[in-house]
Simulated assay, not measured.
Amino acid sequence: MNADDIRTLISVAALVASAISLYFTRRFWLQSNRPVVTAFVDEHSSGNMATAFNLVLSNTGNRPAVNVRVHVDSKMLRKLIGEGATPKMAAEIERCFSPAAMIALLRNGEELTTAFGSYGVERSSQHLNYGAEISVAVTYDDLDKRSYKAYMPLKVFARNGFGGAIWGERVSN
């Protein structure tokens, strides 16, 4: 092997290393510069008789998400709907997971909410089963038509005071 062959091998090795580096750089850039959409249940308001809940979709990524939908198995959804839910209220909760509830554009940093039922001491306000947890899938695309699907739990509970208690309002002395 002469000096020209060695130079050629070194040049080919450098080209291969550059191509691998380019591939991984692009891959990591795509993973870090994308929408990241999550769904969760949050309290809208709470009192001593009932708590109203919202379903929240949040894009914590750094790119907008399009065609955002939350999917759930109908059997799983029945675990979430409480005994006090009228057929109309059950349909309102189910509509959150229908194709009609698709969000065309969810900007990065944006949170959108929709009414999601309530739970209270009276049976008529028990639209949701407090503490029930189901698995949902959130599907969405980015602006370049790359598709994403994320699975996550959806649990009906008070996020403030998740451990069972919260402090009252701070009193200044």
Rank of each mutant, 00 (worst) to 15 (best):
M1K: 04
A3W: 07
D5P: 00
R7Q: 09
T8L: 12
S11M: 10
A17I: 00
I20N: 04
I20M: 12
I20Q: 07
S21Y: 06
T25D: 05
R26P: 00
R26C: 12
R27I: 01
F28M: 08
W29A: 10
W29F: 14
W29Q: 13
L30V: 03
Q31E: 12
N33W: 12
R34N: 08
T38Q: 08
V41N: 06
H44Q: 14
H44M: 11
S45E: 08
S46Q: 13
S46V: 06
N48Y: 09
M49D: 11
A50Y: 15
T51N: 08
T51I: 15
A52P: 00
F53W: 11
N54A: 03
N54G: 01
N54Y: 12
V56G: 01
V56P: 00
L57W: 03
L57R: 14
S58G: 00
N59G: 05
G61T: 05
G61I: 01
R63Y: 07
R63M: 13
P64Y: 08
V68A: 07
V68R: 00
R69E: 09
V70K: 06
V70D: 02
V72S: 04
V72E: 03
S74I: 10
K75I: 07
M76C: 09
L77H: 09
L77G: 10
L77T: 07
L80T: 08
L80E: 07
G82L: 06
E83A: 14
E83P: 02
A85T: 03
T86Y: 07
M89D: 14
E92D: 07
E94N: 11
E94P: 01
R95S: 12
R95C: 04
C96G: 03
A100V: 08
M102Q: 15
M102C: 14
A104W: 01
A104M: 05
N108K: 09
G109E: 04
T114D: 06
A115K: 13
F116K: 03
G117M: 04
G117P: 05
G120I: 11
G120K: 02
V121A: 08
E122P: 00
E122K: 12
S125R: 12
Q126D: 10
Q126R: 15
L128M: 13
N129G: 06
A132S: 13
E133F: 00
I134E: 04
I134A: 13
V136T: 14
A137M: 13
A137R: 11
V138N: 08
V138Y: 03
V138A: 08
T139P: 02
D141A: 15
D141L: 02
D141F: 04
D142K: 05
L143D: 03
K145S: 14
R146G: 00
K149H: 00
Y151N: 11
Y151W: 05
M152W: 00
P153R: 05
L154V: 06
V156P: 03
G161A: 04
A165L: 09
A165H: 09
I166H: 11
E169F: 01
N173M: 04
N173T: 10
